[in-house]
Design a protein around this nucleic acid. Sequence first.
RNA 1: GCGCGAUUAGCUCAGUUGGUAGAGCAACUCAUUUACACUGAGAAGGUCGGGGGUUCAAGUCCCUCAUCGCGCACCA
Length: 729
Amino acid sequence: MINDQPNIDAKLLKPYDPKETEDRIYKMWEESGFFNPDVCIEKGVTESDAKPFSIILPPPNVTGTLHLGHAAMLTIEDIMIRYARMKGYRTLWLPGTDHAAIATQSKVEKILEKEEGKRKNDLGREEFLKRVEVFAQNSHDTIVSQMKKMGTSVDWSREAYTLDEKRNFAVRTAFKKMYDEGLIYRGNRIVNWDPKGQTVISDDEIVYEERKAKFYTFKYSKDFPITISTTRPETKIGDVAVAVNPEDERYQKYVGKTYEIDNFCGGKLTIKIIADKAVEKDLGTGALGVTPAHSQIDAEIATRHNLPTKQVINEYAKMISTNEELNGKKTTEAREIIVEWLKKEGLLEKEEEVTQNISTAERTGGIVEPLPKLQWFINVNKPVPSRDNKSLKELMLEPVRNGKINITPNQFEKVYYNWVENLRDWCISRQIWYGHRIPVWYKGDEIYCGLEAPKEDGWEQDSDTLDTWFSSGLWTFSTLGWPDLNATDLKTYHPTNVLETAYDIIFFWVARMILMSTYILGEVPFRTVYFHGLVRDAKGRKMSKSLGNMIDPLDVIEKFGTDAVRMSLIIGTGPGNDSKMSEDKIKAYKNYANKLWNITRFVLSSTENLKYNPAFNQYKEKEIELIKERDEVLKIITKEMDENKFYLVGDKIYQYTWARFADVIIEESKEIILNGTDEEKLSRKYFLLNTLVDILKVLHPFMPFVTEEIWNLMPVDNKKLLMVEKWPN
RNA sequence: GCGCGAUUAGCUCAGUUGGUAGAGCAACUCAUUUACACUGAGAAGGUCGGGGGUUCAAGUCCCUCAUCGCGCACCA
């Protein structure tokens, strides 16, 4: 075909080719500097006194590559950001990655084991950490290139890492502040010990798995008056009491008595009978063998009744016992030995099959063993003098209750309250190597907490690191220059406008950010929380490697183009709802990108050498009607954008361009342009041209590449990049 | 055990304050080189999970049941 229309670029004569276009456009955006709000002001596309709009990117873990969930997050946030930028806000989207302490470390441990047959102790702390850093760097680089593929308009000049020097300083500063105010303390308490990962984990890092177990009912000895039940007979050598409900008449007469048992599986026990309301009458025999060292509830009961603690299981999930037969045995082996002994002695009364939830560690899969340990905690109940004597719990509840933080969809507010209200002290120390080292030093009995190591000799730093969520909690302000309270970014962009993330980290992260920000800065970290759901496969199943139903964002981008992938992740997906993804759906939006391409070809070829002219006012009646209709659609679109209803807007633009603009308006234009009067022709042509420009603008946040590429080809005077053009009103 | 969500066309989902059920995809019929085949036109497809209630009027509000999914707690 010969290109005989000089104002039509030759590339419009072929179908739209995302592969040829997208990387080139992204480079153009990057080189323009407009991702950086300072450059926008400098170059006059944003007013210097414009209102700020900021989002801090939830930092992806450097444990691998991005999946479709990340792609959805990046798309939603990019839509918010591009919209804000076009609306004239001083718009900052700050990117970063997360060191993800335990997740990254266990990943590298697995690789080390598989590829070299080595364990981390074979390398030593320093050498192992070097390996982790190389791995983290590679993951980081992959993630950055994937983000660029997705079209994310983040300000790379402000990129942060949760474990870099600045963030480490912020972490030390925050820790010291909390320590000095008595909110961080070191205590010997029952913690969740992961024998596989050899570290403590927080309550939230536990994953419950349903398994079949045996429920044994027995007596300690023939003379003992009360029968008890347990699924873990091996812990019973650590029992110090039997607790019953104060209102349980069956056992009243025994309460207060103490029994000496000379031989319970080769050891001695001293059992006191106590009454405690935590015991349920109807569960098991209604009597509970109290094992303070290996059960959270038992430890609480023991504290209330001043009972001793007797540890019988060590860090390797092996037994500690005076009985040689048990000592050093795995808990499962010890269980069998004890059950055999009970049978032999005629003490076992019943053995039932039950299903129980066992606690496993999220990252390693190890079975969690409750153990007494000396660890660091954040006290969530203590009144904070510097915050009107409110506790951290109250500080966390307040802004959500009074609406300073708005959670979308709002059913998550209840979930949040429920979690905060039942929150226990947060265990923040971890016995792993990759992470922020605890800024505490010891010398004999002395303890020092400070930003730097003490000058004198003989001090040794705590070998533990911090829970990764401690540094993540600071993320909204550690990225903006805190602890420098005069930092321009901190003053300009905090509190941030929106936190957009997956709902599954509401406790891990959202709650911890609210805790840190309200305590440290006395202000909320963000005004709106917008939760997106999980991206599932076409059948609604979770994507997983074992099911083989993973969709790699890069694969579908290669096949259909980024714009199509973005649209398919947005449309049909309300906040907080899981969405389903299939290649068919993506393909439909690839067709749409091409439709837009051809609409452009038609409009440009039928308007010859006319230029975009929003000031044109010689419209005929027909076009006046069409403009009214168009502006009504634009008005609704803007309203829904302000309400973050992107799934509705995306579909609305799609509908308007295809079903209305292409199928009806363009079709009838053919007749007008052929046989109309000169005035009618001109009126119609300007309508087509001007409306196409509006479509490109409102579609830009959703499909930034194809719209920017078409914008390139449009006859518009004094053109800037579409990404910094003004949103139509 | 407590709580949350979902249930609308074959599939994925909209449905704003109650006012005659709506889109995309798929399938079906027709058109056939068009700005675009990554196309157009058309037709078909639903007792809105069941039951009850409020109302002139219920997909929408209330009660109840069912199924599915999720969170939290318990797990002696």
